[in-house]
Nucleic acid binder design. Sequence first.
DNA 1: CACTTTTTTCAGAGCTTATTGAAACATATG
DNA 2: CATATGTTTCAATAAGCTCTGAAAAAAGTG
Lengths: 181, 181
Amino acid sequence: MATSGYQESRELFVRRWGEMGATWGISRTMAEIHALLFTATRPLCTDDVMERLNISRGNASMNLRQLLNWGLIHRVHSRDDRKVYFEAESDVWEMFRVISRERQRREVEPIIETIERCHAMVDKPSKTLGAEEAKQARVYARRLAEMLDFLRMMNTASNLLAKAGKGGIRRVLSILSKAIR
Amino acid sequence: MATSGYQESRELFVRRWGEMGATWGISRTMAEIHALLFTATRPLCTDDVMERLNISRGNASMNLRQLLNWGLIHRVHSRDDRKVYFEAESDVWEMFRVISRERQRREVEPIIETIERCHAMVDKPSKTLGAEEAKQARVYARRLAEMLDFLRMMNTASNLLAKAGKGGIRRVLSILSKAIR
DNA sequence: CACTTTTTTCAGAGCTTATTGAAACATATG
DNA sequence: CATATGTTTCAATAAGCTCTGAAAAAAGTG
């Protein structure tokens, strides 16, 4: 196949999206598959993905599953054959909502729980500590409390955004831009 | 040293913060050093960091420098000796501002540039494309445009927040929570 | 239910990234 | 400016993460 500007552009996008994913803690291949499906005009099957990205069946399967788990892509069944096809969420706002909700659930909420536990461990003044150490413990406890406060607020904000949907997010950003300057 | 609840709690926090960093594309050690300094009640020197985290001098030096580059920690000079001490930004809101600004600058802005380039490559209808492919290219171009629109808006929002500072962020979140429900 | 097609799993290979430790480089001191 | 103290660099190594490929499992078909 001759490389048209279209194909060339798409390849560039897929590669670059993969690199970005990598710096955000998403495996390069998973991000590439996502980019491939996001820029596809029809659902692709596992073999399509394998061929376009030059990856093994196992790798494709694993990463497709992860993308399904994230809710970033969906299964589509064809009438013609018995393969499973995949399709990405194409609305970028919805995509953002899904990602931020999932990261919140998987990574932020667990760290909040940990910090709560850490805070509980130093909450009541201990008799086993010297005066100096007790003072340090209080400073430490206050910082944890501030971090908790912050993370909980982010959690709330994220939930609100998730509820708000596309229109809501746009509205918020517009309010935001006026409210600040 | 007997492990007080304080020390135990702090170790847990440092470990957990490191793990979280890792899932967000920040090296475990860098995040651990950051947590250690964030929870410290006095500035620490390289040897303190090495000892507390059981890491080599080179590793400590490299990661401390990276944290300095991010603007998450600062050098402090002691009168007593000629060592350099390090201190973390202790205001979580400021910390968040720094991180989001840096990620924007390092990772989001470059991907915006790439997508602009990708979009330019398929902007004008090509004569080398068949009718079917031209149609696909148009769908693709539209998706890129939507993505660009979204990322630019995020960029704007992030810049606004950066300008707004702590008070501003709080205010925005409060507006946000009212504006949505 | 026997057979075909498609998908998933996972142990080992391969690759990327992080870490060490020692040498080179800075900087302060008398 | 010689020496001591502290910091950075970087090649070699280690650790961790990703990918492959083939075998097992699952799903579809007549």
